[in-house]
């Protein structure tokens, strides 16, 4: 095999040797696979919720406790933020740093208001006597929805770090990769929320 080796290593635009692969491409695939493990993680939580959601142990049922207006607001806020994070990527591809950061700021504010509404919803539930240890239904509800909320919160912190780096360094290969990855993450969280809305809330109140 050694005989055919010498012609490799020259055709690469950046002068890297052939054995070295585009790190952004590797990261994108790695992150995509990580998201799929996250899909399985949420799938397991969904399975637990579906199995346990009728075990209310005399506590409130889904019908009694879910307040749809807040949930609908959360849904549209998150949907819009998914859209604006896409616009951020478009701005980046056009090379416009300021526009990119502005769209990320909009996405961040939308994400933060989503979290605010969700926490508010949880607090109201607890005041109505529906807390974590009330029943198997309550436990699996708070865990499933809370895990999504935790993901969104982590995303917010991470987005902040990326905005700082963008402001400092502008659009480079590295920051470009990071923006691509976080926008993928954000779309993913939106997709998970759709199933939360459908399986937990809509099927709960129908």
């Amino acid at each position: 095999m050694a005989q055919a080796v010498s012609q490799h290593g020259h055709d690469h635009a950046h002068g890297h040797d052939h054995g070295h692969h585009d790190p952004q491409e590797l990261k994108m695939l790695g992150f995509w696979i990580f998201l799929i493990t996250d899909v399985v993680l949420f799938g397991t939580l969904f399975a637990t919720y579906v199995v346990l959601h009728n075990n209310t142990a005399g506590g409130p049922t889904a019908h009694e406790i879910f307040e749809m207006p807040g949930v609908i607001a959360e849904t549209f806020i998150l949907l819009t933020s998914s859209f604006t994070s896409g616009l951020a990527v478009l701005a980046m591809n056009a090379g416009k740093v300021k526009q990119l950061i502005s769209w990320l700021v909009v996405t961040w504010i939308l994400g933060a208001s989503f979290i605010f509404l969700e926490v508010d919803e949880f607090i109201k539930m607890v005041h109505e006597g529906f807390n974590y240890g009330t029943s198997a239904f309550a436990t699996s509800f708070f865990t499933l929805v809370g895990t999504h909320g935790l993901h969104v919160s982590m995303g917010l912190g991470w987005m902040l770090l990326i905005m700082i780096q963008l402001a400092r360094k502008g659009i480079t290969d590295v920051t470009r990769g990071k923006v691509n990855v976080i926008s993928l993450y954000w779309h993913f969280l939106d997709a998970v929320w759709i199933f939360l809305l459908s399986v937990v809330y809509l099927m709960g109140v129908m």
Partner: peptide
């Protein structure tokens, strides 16, 4: 862990856990 630490009822004998 949430059962043990947070007072949840996933797998407990009471509270509807299974």
């Amino acid at each position: 862990f949430l059962d043990r630490f947070g007072g949840g009822h996933f797998f407990t004998l009471d509270g509807g856990g299974n």
